[in-house]
Nucleic acid binder design. Structure first.
Lengths: 149, 149
DNA sequence: TATTGTTATACTCTATAACTATA
DNA sequence: TATAGTTATAGAGTATAACAATA
């Protein structure tokens, strides 16, 4: 054995930002492929994934980072395929709560499973690796709290 | 001092995947805001960012993960605003190489700067944190190589 | 008065298929 | 024959502005 090779120099903030750009693109590439496998677009798949509990149109718009007027069309198409339903809010009659149907629950589970099996490297991470990556991402994106429930 | 609180249990693969979903969404939310500040859409901003050197329409389609026919319109709009130009390839007359104009170089620098200042937490990472995060992301997304040059 | 959801509008992104010029 | 880029088309996502119903 000879001397250790020089360790990689630390990435610059700009290089790390570029890497995050590639990771974000790769994540959505995998997600779009998983959604497409069930006949859904990226936004339709994202919307289903956000419905871990019923949410108002307004809340969905916030979670999707788009204007509320867009959500009408997205939910229309999901409703037309029987994946979600609009329910009247019991206390505020202006509000409609969007909930997954049984078929929607089934579809979102399939999409998640396909996504996981597409991210094989991530599946093989140890507990320690996952904890370390999760902690670093929490610090890098502190504005990224998990939505309630 | 009393006993240490129980450490967080390791995140499950599914929880880490959800966190990556939120991180990817946050990255694009910041990127879209930076591009929008210069009158550009997300895809237009992404395209400018990929032109670190001239690239063919085909290569751009691959890097953008979309069909080549879409790139025509995106490049049309960028060209109409004087941010890129189409150059004939010297060896293959079918190919057009897309290059940033001086104004395009300027704009992409401003977008990158705005994006960096939007990701303040990332800017404050130590060399060690950046190296650790970069290494974990490389392992989690091994299919995510930086494009040449 | 303010908010929720919808509609109308115009623009951008998207994949598919067909076309041309070139290889 | 195959490939690079474009065009035509139809559908989906996008923000803005205006609207009705409700708070």
């Amino acid at each position: 054995m000879h001397q250790n090779p020089r360790p990689d120099p630390p990435a610059t903030p700009g290089e790390l930002m570029d890497q995050l750009a590639r990771v974000a693109a790769a994540y959505y590439r995998h997600f779009a492929a998983a959604a497409s496998g069930h006949g859904l677009t990226l936004m339709q798949g994202k919307t289903l994934s956000l419905l871990t509990r019923p949410r108002s149109m307004r809340a969905l718009a916030g979670l999707l980072s788009c204007d509320a007027s867009n959500v009408t069309g997205i939910v229309d198409r999901l409703e037309g395929r029987g994946l979600v339903r609009r329910e009247p809010d019991p206390v505020d009659r202006r509000v409609k709560n969007i909930a997954l149907t049984d078929q929607g629950e089934h579809t979102v589970r399939l999409i998640r499973a396909d996504l996981m099996s597409g991210l094989t490297a991530l599946e093989r991470f140890s507990d320690q690796d996952r904890t370390a990556l999760g902690a670093l991402l929490d610090r890098a994106f502190p504005d990224t709290a998990a939505p309630s429930a």
